[in-house]
Design a binder for these strands. Structure first.
Lengths: 213, 213
DNA sequence: CCCGACATCAACCTTTCGATTGACCGGCCC
DNA sequence: GGGCCGGTCAATCGAAAGGTTGATGTCGGG
């Protein structure tokens, strides 16, 4: 027998009990992992992470209500000695990926990932390296290759809200901006996407999977 | 020891390995349940269900590719002696719920349901009764109260083009109408969807799966 | 250190959209 | 036959969106 190394201590943050149970089942079956705690809300995940005792946090992006996963990620990684945060979500839009990386996520996985890929990513994250799902990595490469039409993070935020049906006034309030700024972002978005209206911008962005639907 | 009754035999159909593991963990912990098989695609679920040996199928609606969960449900329930199909999904759009009920689903649950609720619904479905999550039941009641909601064929045509980013003028030319008629259709669409702009109409219609994307 | 990219805001003007009102016609059902 | 619904169109008015120009501050790289 070799001496077992210290196990990787995990915190699961997802609002779906079934998903938490699934992650627990999959990861506990893996040697070297220990699921220490679960959080059903992003807020709770931040609390628990602040208390310490974790190596890796598995974080969903969409919680039913309250704080968003990327906000929680930012709050967690702001700490010194913070655990590594691994995003585990259903969607792979540019907007989501950029927000998560920006917030300090160590990796980005999709929920349809097979267990081995999941386990490998957790190990990678625990070692302090970046872990991107192949599909996600591919999107990022695409983005690099065509810098002309790459929307900035802020532009994607605005576009996302346009896609949800908000007016410029509503967007300006949501993002604490003036309407002038929202319009300004939209002008840039239209130019980059080669369109001339909000609805066609949403159509183009949806087709290119820039925003989530 | 009392004689144990025959266990309820389950088929899990979901494209996420993690979710399948979670359902298995949650349901196997419950006395009287036995997870007999899993399917990662809707097509596979139909095959397995046709072979028999199940009392209840837990069916996701959105599979990454291929057949939709509601189609699979219809295919399964078309059989005589078919198992009861319980929908288990993330979304609770009207269109999804109606399509599932239409397809012969015995119940409709949301993935954020607590394990007890899930177990109770499975038992209810196995007994041949209907099982609706409270949130879902609420939506259905809402819908009954507002029967005005169905869009006409023409309205859907217009809405589809709006979703593709066309202006009223472009739509009028495409459909050989006057702009006035297009506007008239839009007014009706807004009223039925409960929105007040083209972008939010598209958002609402997308959420309810009224138009293709 | 300067320049460019990004984000922010303002003022002005034109076009489009949305809301309202009202009208006509062809089916369909009781 | 008289309603009702769906589809068509028109005129009008105010609100929202889009186009243009220009300005400010910050930040990072060459």
């Amino acid at each position: 027998m070799t001496a077992s190394p210290a196990p990787i201590r995990l915190l699961l943050a997802d609002d779906h009990p079934v998903v938490r149970a699934g992650l627990r089942a999959v990861l506990d079956a893996e040697p070297g992992f220990r699921v220490v705690a679960e959080a059903a809300t992003a807020e709770r995940a931040v609390e628990l992470a602040a208390a310490g005792g974790f190596d890796v946090v598995l974080m969903d992006l969409q919680f039913g209500a309250g704080m968003h996963g990327s906000q929680a990620t930012a709050a967690i990684t702001a700490h010194p000695d913070a655990p590594h945060v691994l995003i585990l979500t259903t969607y792979d839009s540019d907007a989501d990926i950029l927000a998560a990386v920006e917030a300090g996520a160590a990796g980005y996985l999709l929920k349809d990932a097979p267990p081995e890929e999941l386990a490998a990513a957790v190990r990678t994250a625990a070692a302090g390296r970046s872990a991107l799902a192949p599909a996600v990595a591919h999107r990022l490469m695409d983005r690099m290759r065509t810098p002309a039409e790459a929307l900035t993070k802020r532009e994607l935020e605005v576009l996302q809200l346009v896609g949800e049906g908000l007016s410029n006034l509503q967007i300006s309030k949501r993002l604490f901006l003036s309407q002038a700024t929202v319009k300004s972002h939209l002008v840039h978005i239209y130019a980059k996407l080669g369109v001339d209206s909000r609805t066609s911008a949403v159509a183009a962005a949806t087709a290119r999977r820039l925003i989530r639907r």
